[in-house]
């Protein structure tokens, strides 16, 4: 009997190590594959890969497009989300606050394709064209819950005594929040914003029916179509041409490196991440 229990114990240990390994292994295989398949493409095409248009074998317009979308969506989404984060921090007990927090939780995991289709309906169709604006708006909607939650969390992490000190000097809610507390929390807030931007910069589904894609010429206006790296990859994979596939691998490697390069330093300076 004792032997049977011991066997179960050993099997269990194997299961644990094996399971944990399997859970993480795909990441390594993905990185490995991307390097093997993407590096040769980038090397053989050189700087043209980063500056050229698609028919020149480059993803330049997509890179610029991603930056434009990241910038625009931040402009739209961050201020609103920041204010919402302040609200739920400052007034946590009201019914409104509970509702909002629930709503934010829902939005954190919301299917991003649905956001894209929604924005298509309210912006693209009336405007009659795909646009950077529409793409940015869709990304902003996705970004907002992250920024709000990180802002509120960063504010909550401020030791209570600073709040007391500020009020005891006769300062009101507004001055306390903006002149004392937010500056103390600014690192945490900023980090959260960066993570949110990193996340939306890698999104594809929200851009499918909003941004339009633009890869032969560089972006020329916010009410004109724009491309993005993830969107480009998606389009290229579905093409029958193997050159396109090669470009897709190269672009994926670029996307991976940028993502890891931004995500890891930020993640290291945070204690935990909202998923």
């Amino acid at each position: 009997m004792l032997n049977f229990r011991k066997i179960k114990d050993k099997l269990f240990l194997t299961f644990i190590f094996f399971g944990a390994f399997i859970a993480l292994f795909p990441l390594f295989h993905i990185i490995f594959t991307l390097i093997i398949k993407g590096m040769p493409v980038i090397i053989s095409r050189g700087t043209m890969f980063f500056t050229g248009t698609l028919s020149q074998g480059g993803i330049g317009p997509a890179i610029v497009g991603t930056f434009i979308l990241a910038f625009l969506s931040s402009l739209i989404g961050i201020p609103i989300a920041f204010l919402v984060g302040l609200y739920i921090y400052e007034y946590p007990d009201s019914k409104v606050s509970e509702f909002v927090r629930g709503l934010l939780q829902i939005m954190l995991e919301f299917p991003t394709i649905l956001v894209g289709v929604f924005v298509m309906d309210i912006l693209v169709i009336p405007m009659g064209t795909y646009s950077a604006l529409a793409g940015a708006f869709a990304l902003a909607i996705i970004m907002m819950p992250y920024v709000s939650v990180y802002t509120a969390e960063a504010m909550r992490n401020i030791p209570y005594t600073y709040r007391e000190a500020s009020f005891s000097l006769g300062l009101n809610c507004f001055k306390t929040a903006f002149r004392i507390l937010v500056p103390i929390a600014k690192r945490g807030i900023f980090t959260g914003i960066l993570i949110a931007i990193a996340k939306v910069a890698g999104e594809t589904a929200p851009l499918l029916f909003t941004a339009g894609g633009l890869y032969e010429i560089y972006p020329h206006g916010i009410s004109a179509p724009v491309g993005a790296i993830p969107l480009l990859i998606y389009t290229l994979i579905q093409s029958p041409s193997s050159t396109d596939h090669a470009t897709a691998w190269g672009a994926s490697l670029v996307l991976l490196l940028v993502f890891i390069g931004v995500f890891i330093p930020i993640r290291l300076s945070l204690k935990e991440v909202k998923l």
Partner: peptide
Amino acid sequence: LVIILSDVMAGLPTIIYGIWGAFV
């Protein structure tokens, strides 16, 4: 390290999973 790796996998752009999934 292991926790961070898991978080990276959670945040990784899904298109990267897509290309790896489709071709590998």
